[in-house]
């Protein structure tokens, strides 16, 4: 309804953008997200410095999920390269695997929580315990958005709407997905270093 009239207005003159606005918006969202986790991790460090901090083993599954998310990033990159080269079949396969790995990551995190509970690490325990739950859970929430985004791109690719001349969606998807991967690896290393 509205977009119509905006488009017609824009057709007078197509402004030239330095960066595509959508891409810019995504980057700003990533900045906001970085600030959120920066807030969390600084809170973690501040609290850590005050003592009375329970030290415990992180679940094995966190390592597994780190490998999974790193792998998925590789596939995502493959999909993007394939799109650049216009190899439609490869895009579909790579995106499909990425989405599946994303879902695997989610399941893996969930299992990691039960592993934590088995090790007597509870959400309501010492803040050292609560922090791991809440920070990884917030990342998981970001992951949910990411997987949905990948699935949307995947469906688009099934309809052959992702190709050399229509790269925006997969470009955005690629950026966000790598961000999620890097974010998790940062968090994983952070947890390992600040116990």
């Amino acid at each position: 309804m509205m977009t119509q009239s905006i488009k017609s207005a824009k057709s007078h003159q197509e402004p030239e953008y330095v960066i595509n606005p959508k891409k810019f918006v995504l980057w700003l969202l990533i900045v906001a997200s970085v600030m959120l986790f920066a807030g969390f991790t600084s809170a973690y460090i501040v609290r850590h410095g005050e003592g009375n901090w329970r030290v415990y083993e992180l679940p094995q599954l966190f390592t597994t999920s780190t490998i999974i998310i790193a792998l998925s990033s590789v596939f995502m990159q493959w999909a993007y390269m394939a799109a650049k080269k216009d190899e439609l079949g490869q895009i579909k396969i790579a995106l499909g695997i990425t989405a599946a790995l994303g879902i695997c990551f989610g399941i893996c995190q969930w299992l990691a929580y039960s592993q934590l509970v088995q090790n007597n690490v509870y959400f309501t325990g010492n803040p050292s315990e609560s922090f791991v739950y809440i920070i990884s859970f917030m990342h998981l929430m970001h992951m949910v958005g990411g997987v949905i985004f990948v699935l949307v791109t995947f469906i688009k690719s099934l309809r052959s709407k992702v190709h050399k001349k229509s790269l925006l969606t997969i470009n955005l998807c690629n950026t966000y997905w790598h961000f999620l991967g890097i974010l998790w690896i940062y968090l994983f290393v952070f947890f390992q270093l600040n116990r």
Partner: peptide
């Protein structure tokens, strides 16, 4: 740059209030 930090702070407060954590 600053609102996300308040978001984090509010979430932790929400956890303390409703889910029994003690941040």
């Amino acid at each position: 740059l600053s609102f996300p930090v308040l978001l984090g702070g509010s979430l932790l407060l929400l956890m303390d209030r409703s889910f029994g954590t003690s941040f």
